[in-house]
């Protein structure tokens, strides 16, 4: 690490006033937005990472709270969104436009600043398809260590199903100052070589059964993101990501999640786990479940996923429904 940075440093913010900044970039004295104390959430290890639709409806507009919609469909937000929310598009905004990688700290600071997000904002993500892309956006924000990130349990579908307010009115957030933070790829992100070195330790493949066995070279209905080889990384357990979601798009209860990941699949919170899918989006949903709901401290998302592994030369692959092992 070299020289350790001072715990608190001074930062000149716009308007030329000095404020005291903690090491994680948040301002001293900023009031946090309170947590949702809903009993379903409190059963999870990190209930502060979730809010219910009721909580959000009650806290909309509160200073320090920014609601971010992140969808698969790039236009869905524009057809109507939660009042005051802003949109982040995974494809055109969170990815670097040239290199297969995420944006850098400079660009991330711009993305946040434009949306009125400062380092101490409470950011609540919601989106379509069981919060698939919302958890992906949350994971990318976590690469930059944004301290207070939360998911709206049930996402867009639940909010709409409950008849809660939606608007097409354009949100006009006041620009915020966001510090340039170096992305930390070492804690919650895994790269191909690290996955190779990890073989023999727990891996979770969250794709559909057909993709796992190798029958399908792509996700059902998404043939454009294929790979030249089918199958899975040897030793990987098959747990399709959406098993963690209930009918109404909320996360399943703690007990139901433990039944799937711990009792059925034999994972343990002490495990060093890597989750993957096709490009790392579905597996960020599973990463969220394991990390924040079940409290596994060492979970990484392999965003290269099958579109990298299944196109790589001479990497081991297991075909069929069995986990397989590395010989």
């Amino acid at each position: 690490m070299g020289m350790s940075p001072p715990v608190i440093r001074r930062l000149l913010t716009e308007g030329a006033s000095w404020s005291l900044i903690r090491e994680n970039g948040t301002r001293l004295g900023a009031m946090p937005v309170q947590n949702d104390t809903d009993p379903k959430l409190s059963a999870y290890t990190h209930p502060e990472r979730l809010v219910t639709t009721q909580w959000l409806a009650e806290h909309l507009g509160e200073p320090g709270l920014v609601v971010v919609e992140s969808d698969e469909d790039v236009l869905l937000y524009d057809t109507g969104h939660i009042p005051g929310s802003v949109k982040v598009d995974w494809h055109t905004e969170l990815n670097d436009p040239v290199t297969r990688d995420y944006v850098d700290g400079q660009r991330f600071a711009e993305i946040c600043g434009e949306r009125g997000i400062s380092r101490d904002s409470t950011v609540v993500f919601y989106g379509d398809r069981n919060n698939w892309w919302a958890t992906y956006a949350l994971w990318v924000f976590s690469l930059f260590g944004h301290p207070d990130v939360r998911i709206l349990d049930g996402g867009r579908a639940k909010w709409v199903a409950e008849g809660r307010e939606m608007t097409t009115e354009q949100s006009k957030p006041e620009r915020a100052e966001y510090p340039v933070i170096e992305r930390d790829d070492s804690t919650i992100r895994a790269f191909k070589d690290q996955v190779r070195a990890h073989l023999g330790k727990p891996l979770v493949d969250v794709r559909s059964p057909g993709e796992y066995s190798g029958e399908l070279l792509h996700m059902p209905d998404y043939p454009q993101e294929g790979a030249v080889r089918g199958g899975h990384i040897p030793g990987a357990a098959s747990v399709p990501w959406a098993r963690a979601a209930a009918e109404d798009g909320t996360f399943k209860s703690r007990k139901d999640l433990e039944d799937i990941y711990q009792r059925e699949q034999g994972l343990s919170p002490d495990d060093d786990v890597i989750a993957y899918c096709r490009i790392g989006e579905r597996s960020s949903h599973t990463w969220f479940v394991l990390t924040h709901l079940l409290g596994f401290p060492q979970v990484r998302n392999y965003d290269g996923s099958w579109t990298e592994w299944g196109n790589s030369v001479r990497v081991p692959i297991a075909v069929g429904t069995e986990r397989g092992s590395v010989s």
């Binding site: 469909d73 790039v74 236009l75 869905l76 524009d78 057809t79 379509d128």
Partner: peptide
């Protein structure tokens, strides 16, 4: 479906 505006577009 209406929740797929890009595809509809």
């Amino acid at each position: 479906p209406p929740e797929a505006p890009t595809t509809r577009g």
